[in-house]
Computed example of a mutant assay.
Amino acid sequence: MKNLLVLLYLLSAVMIVSCSKSDKVNPSPQDILNKKISDILPQQYIDTLAKLGLTVNQGTTPPNVEGAFSIAPLILKNSNIKTDYPGKSFHDASVKFFEQSTKDFGIKLVGKFFLNAADTSITTAISGSGNNFTVYGKVKSVSADKSKFAYFGILLSGTKDGTDLKNVTYGIINIDNKNGTGVFINEGQGRVAYDKDLVSGSINFDAVSSLKNRERVFLAAPSKP
């Protein structure tokens, strides 16, 4: 009996180790997505933007959002910056999504006038289900004289509707400002803005040389009293 108990214990231990190794070799889609997102920005910054009113669409079956879209007029929804006020308008923006992957939830992003006249994500991921999605990106923003820079987390949520996007909400948050003091909003500060007319139409992104200028205020620019 004693030998039998020892044998059962050893078999149980082998099964536990085998399952553990199997999980590492074959991670679930959710595990892959979670790691992808955590490599882009810490959860605390996602939580901050969610508290400011950004909808985060979770899930591992996002719609295909490849294409280019105009996000205008872009209006401030909420902010944790004292000098900001809801309803403030920002420079019209556009975004292009491409190379979306259903295997590792990667996607590439190129934008105009979210942070600067040209924004390119360093790392990006997408989550969602049905027609709802959220794109997570990390972007390096450089000052005009190229002397300072900061890293921003960007989240863009919405609903794919045919060739357009609807109900787009966009958030930016400074996640690393040690080389950007005095130029950018402070680390941990963020803004959430939305497309006021609720429809972000499909555009020929490469043909856009300039966008309609409202106040020439970018989402990442430092606020002035």
Rank of each mutant, 00 (worst) to 15 (best):
T181I: 04
H91F: 06
S79K: 02
S157M: 00
Y194Q: 10
D164V: 07
S127R: 09
T60R: 15
P27C: 11
L211N: 03
A72H: 07
F113L: 08
G67Y: 14
L54S: 03
N34V: 09
P62K: 15
F97G: 05
N64D: 10
K108L: 09
V217T: 00
P222D: 13
F98A: 07
H91E: 07
L8S: 12
L7H: 13
I107R: 03
N132I: 04
L7S: 11
G158A: 07
K160Q: 09
A93I: 05
Y170H: 04
D206Q: 09
L156F: 01
T120A: 12
A125E: 11
D161F: 00
F218N: 11
S147T: 10
A68K: 00
L11Q: 14
S209V: 06
L5H: 12
L76A: 02
K108D: 12
K148H: 12
S12P: 06
P86C: 15
F149Q: 13
T159M: 14
S209T: 02
I203G: 04
S143Q: 04
L52N: 03
V142I: 11
L4D: 14
I185C: 09
V208Q: 04
V25S: 02
V6M: 01
P73T: 12
K166L: 04
S200Q: 07
A50M: 07
N132W: 06
G130E: 05
Y170R: 04
G59A: 12
F97A: 10
P63H: 03
D39V: 00
A117K: 04
K178Y: 12
P42K: 15
E215T: 14
F205M: 06
V199Y: 10
A50C: 09
L165K: 08
Q44C: 05
K35F: 05
N132Y: 05
L41S: 08
P42V: 09
Y45V: 06
K138C: 08
N167I: 03
S202T: 07
S127H: 09
I81M: 08
D161Y: 06
V142A: 00
E99C: 08
N26F: 14
K196D: 13
G111E: 01
R214C: 00
F69R: 08
Y151I: 00
K112A: 11
I37E: 02
N132A: 09
T159N: 02
N57I: 04
K146S: 11
I75H: 00
G171D: 05
M1K: 14
A125Y: 09
G130Q: 08
C19M: 06
G153S: 06
D23K: 11
V95Q: 07
G87A: 12
V110I: 13
V25Q: 02
A150R: 03
A72G: 03
I71A: 12
N3I: 01
S147W: 09
T124L: 09
S143M: 04
V199S: 08
K24L: 15
V6A: 04
N186C: 10
I175V: 10
F114I: 05
D119W: 14
L52G: 11
V65M: 05
V17I: 15
V192I: 05
E66W: 01
D23H: 14
D197L: 14
K36E: 12
G158I: 04
Q44E: 11
Q30H: 02
S147I: 08
A221D: 14
G137A: 15
L49N: 09
K35S: 15
D23Q: 15
T163H: 02
N34E: 13
N179R: 00
A68C: 02
L109V: 15
V217R: 00
